[in-house]
């Protein structure tokens, strides 16, 4: 089953990527769109394909893969299927950075001011976590530090909205926090991609250590796994992935929680195999959701994060129900 899984996931992701390129309010034909994308013939259609839909589809892949991978890695490290990328507080802090930028008007000062502020928020969160959780601490201190930072970032975000003098900025902020990939450009891709690819490069090699952690921290340490280093790598990698994803797309929940859950039975529950599988699965899921927001309510700018939660929560309930029945 595992052998067939990866080709299937790659094919599904590629198909959804193509479908994402062909989805939008400007109704171009299939051949017209693709030839414009490749050859650059036809000014309007080329502009739409290359400057609007292509970066949007690429960002969906980057964001989805980053969230899926981060979720699988955190679940593996914490040995808990309920862990999700927001747990270590980085997404909350990145959102806080963005909110401050929007409320102060800094976000309007230049094109990438908003995502850069969000990345700064993520960086502050990582440094705080590493200080709070200490170099030798176990997984529990990491969770507690993450919860504390999430709570603080959430409170400060609320404070910024609470004290906001400008209702327009508040509305903009609230909509931004719902998460979306609409109207993103290649500038967003170039900003987020290096962080995400760095994150993937740091997290993907952790598979071996996460496999060993299946048997507990003591057993893993005795099998030669350096747990302090593993944890440092995990925090830095997940923060790079989640911070960059939040910076360009806002808060998109449930991907990192549901995707590893869906794929775990298909990879024999091995954390090392689940990492790349969840990256592909996350990319496919965000592509699919981002196509859906454009098809369901094309005029109303349905937010990606909202749709994801509406699909994700019942899916998750179904999984819990199935798990409960299997356990009973």
């Amino acid at each position: 089953m595992t052998r067939a899984l990866f080709p299937v996931l790659v094919l599904v992701t590629l198909a959804l990527f193509a479908l994402s390129l062909l989805t939008g309010p400007a109704g171009f034909g299939l051949r017209e769109s693709l030839s414009a994308l490749v050859t650059g013939q036809g000014e309007a259609v080329t502009l739409v394909m290359r400057e609007i839909r292509l970066p949007r589809a690429i960002l969906a892949v980057l964001v989805g893969a980053s969230l899926g991978l981060s979720g699988a890695a955190l679940q593996g490290y914490l040995r808990n299927p309920l862990a999700e990328p927001g747990l270590i507080g980085v997404s909350g802090s990145a959102a806080l950075g963005a909110v401050i930028a929007m409320q102060t008007g800094f976000a309007a000062s230049f094109a990438l001011a908003l995502p850069l502020s969000a990345l700064t928020g993520a960086l502050v969160a990582v440094l705080l976590i590493l200080v709070l959780a200490g170099p030798r601490g176990g997984s529990l201190t990491l969770i507690l530090a993450g919860i504390a930072i999430s709570a603080l970032a959430g409170a400060l975000t609320s404070l910024a909205l609470n004290l906001s003098p400008n209702p327009f900025a508040t509305a903009e902020t609230v909509f931004w926090m719902m998460g979306s990939l609409a109207d993103r450009s290649f500038a967003h891709v170039w900003l987020a991609a290096p962080f995400m690819i760095l994150g993937w490069a740091v997290v993907l090699p952790l598979g071996r250590g996460l496999d060993a952690l299946t048997l507990g921290e003591d057993a893993a340490a005795a099998m030669g796994i350096g747990l302090s280093r593993l944890r440092l790598q995990l925090v830095v990698g997940v923060a790079a992935c989640v911070g960059a994803a939040t910076a360009v797309a806002g808060a998109i929940g449930f991907v990192g929680l549901v995707v590893p859950h869906l794929l775990r039975p298909l990879v024999g529950a091995r954390p090392s195999v689940l990492l790349p599988a969840s990256a592909l699965g996350g990319a496919a899921m965000v592509l699919l959701a981002d196509i859906a927001v454009r098809l369901v309510l094309p005029e109303r700018d349905l937010k990606l994060g909202v749709l994801m939660a509406i699909i994700g929560a019942p899916l998750f309930l179904h999984l819990i129900y199935k798990t409960r029945r299997a356990g009973a």
Binding site: A212, D218, G224
Partner: peptide, 26 residues
């Protein structure tokens, strides 16, 4: 040195053979 902790932790439903193969990690 192999170490068998007292706590019998098995976090995920991995196959028995896969679990025992973890011993080959080093």
């Amino acid at each position: 040195a192999a170490w068998l902790p007292q706590a019998r932790d098995i976090a995920w439903p991995i196959a028995v053979e896969t679990l025992v193969m973890l011993g080959r990690t080093p």
